[in-house]
């Protein structure tokens, strides 16, 4: 008993510094944020308590509503398009061939390039007199040319596609790690039974890969809902509110409009969205893990 108690207090003593730091720099600011989200506050004066007004206003503010819609579109695109593509890429580069290492590096390369650099370079390429329109012109497709980031219909889809350029490589590498952890003797046994091609994929690869799918989907959804840097650098949410994301709307409410109380409410709403979507997604994919 004495020994256990001493063990307990030793543990507590070791935990204390980390706990203190965590409480001070995470929970305290978080609780403060909850308070500020119910206030009218410009960041420097005294906050004025206004009840639920900030939360109510979130649902009528086009920046927030359009931002939420775009963030959800991004998440859906990530689940429906990005993940299958990343899985396909991973399956392909998992095969042994001569330039495999080079292709794996090439696919992962966009992940290590700074997103700011990426945004600036792509921004130049996509301008009206940029590389892509030049190609279209030379192909005789002048009617397709446009300011890709400067029109309502193309600005956010362009941002989605650009984000995939980076995200697919990242997800593919995680899938690749998952694929390589599947014991080869499972395939050998199935092949002895006559299984081939898609049957192997359907009955061995996919079920064995489900834990990885769960993780990748989780990262995809959270990443999509938190998307900020690409639209911030490339379009600042425009034209109009067409390429706003929820995170960008929160940022602009705080730092462009000095409306910190409202921005904090937006931040808390964003956190709730991420938690809800993630819980739903995790429960669905985990159930599939068991079923498969």
């Amino acid at each position: 008993m004495n020994l256990n108690r001493r063990k307990f207090w030793t543990g507590v003593l070791f935990l204390l510094p980390a706990l203190a730091v965590f409480l001070l720099f995470f929970y305290y600011p978080f609780l403060e944020s909850v308070y500020y989200s119910f206030t009218l506050w410009n960041g420097s004066g005294k906050p004025e308590f206004i009840g639920w007004d900030n939360y109510v206003n979130l649902f009528t503010d086009p920046h927030m509503t359009d931002g939420l819609q775009n963030s959800l579109k991004m998440a859906v695109f990530g689940i429906v398009v990005q993940n299958p593509l990343a899985l396909l890429v991973a399956v392909l580069i998992n095969k042994r061939f001569r330039t495999g290492a080079f292709i794996r590096t090439a696919i992962y390369f966009p992940v290590i390039v700074s997103l700011v650099v990426t945004s600036v370079v792509w921004g130049q390429l996509l301008q009206f007199d940029g590389f892509f329109n030049e190609i279209l012109n030379r192909l005789g497709l002048e009617s397709w040319t446009r300011d890709w980031l400067g029109t309502l219909k193309t600005s956010f889809p362009t941002i989605i596609l650009l984000s995939q350029w980076q995200a697919i490589g990242f997800c593919a590498v995680i899938y690749l790690a998952g694929l390589q952890s599947i014991p080869p003797d499972m395939y050998e046994a199935a092949e002895l039974e006559g299984a081939r091609g898609f049957t192997l994929f359907r009955n061995i690869t996919l079920p064995m890969l489900m834990p990885t799918v769960t993780i990748v989907l989780f990262l995809t959804v959270v990443g999509a809902l938190k998307l900020f840097d690409l639209p911030y650098i490339m379009t600042n949410g425009g034209p109009g509110t067409s390429s706003y994301t929820l995170f960008l709307a929160v940022y602009n409410a705080a730092f462009r409009e000095n409306n910190y109380g409202y921005a904090t409410a937006g931040g808390i709403f964003l956190a709730v969205c991420i938690i809800v979507v993630s819980v739903v997604q995790l429960s669905v994919t985990r159930r599939r893990e068991v079923e498969l």
Binding site: P62, H63, T151, L152, G238, P239, G240, S242, E257
Partner: peptide, 28 residues
């Protein structure tokens, strides 16, 4: 407020992008 200025500026960029202006856009 700055948010109203931002909303008007959004409308300017929307119109410059080629979207037609409707008076109802000013409701935002």
């Amino acid at each position: 407020p700055t948010s109203a200025t931002t909303a008007m500026t959004d409308l300017v960029t929307k119109v410059i992008s080629g979207a037609p202006f409707h008076p109802s856009d000013l409701k935002a």
